[in-house]
Amino acid sequence: MIRHLLSTADLSRDDATLVLDTAEEMAGLTEGRSVKKLPALRGRTVVNLFFEDSTRTRTSFELAAKRLSADVVNFSAKGSSLSKGESLKDTALTLEAMGADGVVVRHSASGAPYRLATSGWINANVLNAGDGTHEHPTQALLDAFTLRRHLGELAGRHVVIVGDVLHGRVARSNVLLLATLGARVTLVAPPTLLPMGVEQWPCTVSYDLDAVLPDADAVMMLRVQRERMHDAYFPSAREYSRRYGLDARRFARLADDAVVLHPGPMNRGMEITADVADSDRSVIVEQVTNGVYVRMAVLYLMLAGAANDGARDERRSERDEVGGAANDGARDERRSERDQADPSAQEETT
């Protein structure tokens, strides 16, 4: 399994399938149980580092980590040192000093999780919970999980993704993951809301929603991010919803077993009408439930085993070679303290 989850592009088909299969077991282990708690991450610390507001993703990660018995610490931008201008590096060093094992990070800048993972500031496993307009891997995994539960194996299935691909990190992560899993993806959006270079993504692009719907096994509606756009990408909200919104008329064009997804939060009446969002083929609420299972799976696979510690040791020694001796002295001490702490934690459980 990979050490950091930064992009769905890093996941091989086997990795992705392992995550989805593990999520299935997590669902089986918690659904309908009176004790929704598993011991796999006992003694591990997971930090939710949220530079951008997010209720559902943070709550979902928090719940997932807690169900696996990890200790969870929430850092959010508001009301913390993050809003006082602390740099990413200093925040990272603080987390390292506190002994974080996993850091779930959301940041408005694309690439911030990558920086955190590769800078050598921290030894923790980094999980990208959305970075700028780049990626949101666990959202794509939970979408794939939801699709798989309804459609079976995804190879050869056709998924249509509609909406703001330019600002939406969900679209990129989904396209990459679905392509890895062998599904066919069509993006539908106004030309102004497609990013440069989209023609090199492993998908096809269309501007005509009505034409692609009859052939779709699933439709994923993306949120029109009003806060990100300054009304220049399309003439009016009304025109957008007429051309790219999913209403009852378009819904009727879908195959009988096709499902509708939305990563939330929805703008009812904009990209999706209320009757479609509430129909029995809309799996939007289920996506939220599945998000917890998928995040449990990812946290378990990345943090529960020993590969984690092994990789850390490697990185530690790499850093020892690279880093200057002077400023690393203090860290060495801290490190050895942690080295001593780790085995004792193991003894406790054996």
């Binding site: 299969d21 943090l303 529960a304 085993g305 020993a306 193991q346 459980t349 054996t350």
Partner: peptide
Amino acid sequence: DDLRLRPARAL
């Protein structure tokens, strides 16, 4: 009890 001694295993 040996969960941490080896890479995470598939469930």
